[in-house]
């Protein structure tokens, strides 16, 4: 089977900044003795796994465990701080806030989104009726999206995304707002996807949904990969954990959470900065000067009234 997605030691950290000013300094990579207590938050750490063609992988975990960060990394919306991600093919991310233009009607949104995916005009015309039928929101398709219910929004988002024919589809809890009839329809569509050798990621905090949809599951726990393997096995481990956690007294629950979160905060190390620093060679400075200097000279001449 063909390798579709490969992650190697992927880290994504967010700097816990004191204020906007520090962000600005970091942006221009100004060397500054950073404060001793400067911390960064490892949203995901040391993720290494491989996913093959035709697999559907459920990503499960508690709230705030890094599921959405991982799905954004897979969709290449954000870049990893370190490590590398190799993805073979086009990805499409469906989230509840599906990136629809609120002022435009559903119909126009279909056209705009397909267009932005780079689908040629003739194909869009062919796809439109299919998408409208799949979304199944009736005459609302001609209403502006801002009048939609959250269910309608995610139905439209899902319908568009599956019809743009991505190689890798990432579904970030988008189905949790749809009703069961739509969920069944989506399930069918996803099975059809798998048959055609496409790869699916399904993000959810519900083990039951993942069991229904996926062959494999990936449990991410406070940024770390806790388990990856057959759905039943991983889902069982996850459910065991949830049951264990729920029977803890409130104080211990809080302590556990605090400990886990503390382990995600590590001292900030400069050389892991997320901006790949370009080496500003001297020749580049010459070019910069070569571009900027004439402007200054000519500006001076204009002021002097030449």
């Amino acid at each position: 089977m063909k390798l579709k997605v490969e992650l190697n030691n992927v880290y994504k950290s967010f700097l816990m900044r004191g204020n906007q000013y520090e962000k600005l300094l970091e942006l221009f990579s100004i060397q500054k003795k950073h404060k001793k207590n400067q911390k960064e938050f490892l949203a995901v750490r040391n993720l290494t796994f491989k996913v093959y063609e035709g697999e559907s992988v459920g990503i499960i975990g508690l709230n705030g465990s890094g599921k959405s960060t991982l799905s954004n990394l897979l969709a290449q919306v954000i870049q990893p701080t370190s490590g590398n991600i190799n993805i073979d093919g086009e990805t499409s991310l469906i989230a509840i806030s599906a990136g629809l233009n609120n002022n435009l009607s559903g119909y126009d949104n279909i056209e705009q989104k397909c267009m932005m995916h780079g689908i040629p005009k003739e194909n869009i015309e062919k796809l439109k009726p299919e998408i409208i039928e799949f979304a199944d929101i009736g005459d609302y398709i001609y209403q502006p999206v801002k009048n939609y219910s959250s269910g309608m929004r995610s139905r439209l988002g899902f319908a568009i995304a599956v019809h743009t024919d991505p190689d890798i589809l990432i579904i970030d809890e988008a189905l949790s707002v749809g009703d069961s009839t739509f969920a069944d329809k989506s399930l069918q569509k996803m099975n059809e996807f798998k048959k055609r050798g496409k790869t699916l990621f399904f993000v959810s905090h519900s083990a039951a949904q993942v069991r229904k949809f996926c062959d494999k599951a990936l449990w991410i726990h406070y940024g770390e990969l806790k388990a990856f393997g057959e759905t039943d096995e991983v889902a069982k481990q996850y459910q065991d954990f949830v049951t264990w956690f729920n029977q803890l007294p409130q104080i211990e629950k809080n302590n556990y959470k605090r400990e886990q979160l503390a382990s995600q905060k590590v001292p900030y190390i400069k050389n892991k900065s997320k901006l790949q620093k370009e080496t500003n060679s001297s020749s580049e400075w010459v070019i910069n000067l070569f571009v900027a200097l004439p402007v200054l000279v000519l500006g001076l001449l204009v002021v002097l009234g030449w």
């Binding site: 969709a75 290449q76 919306v77 086009e90 990805t91 499409s92 991310l93 990136g99 233009n101 932005m116 995916h117 780079g118």
Partner: peptide
């Protein structure tokens, strides 16, 4: 950017 960064755009 939130809308387009998910695409090859």
């Amino acid at each position: 950017v939130a809308l387009v960064s998910k695409m090859n755009f």
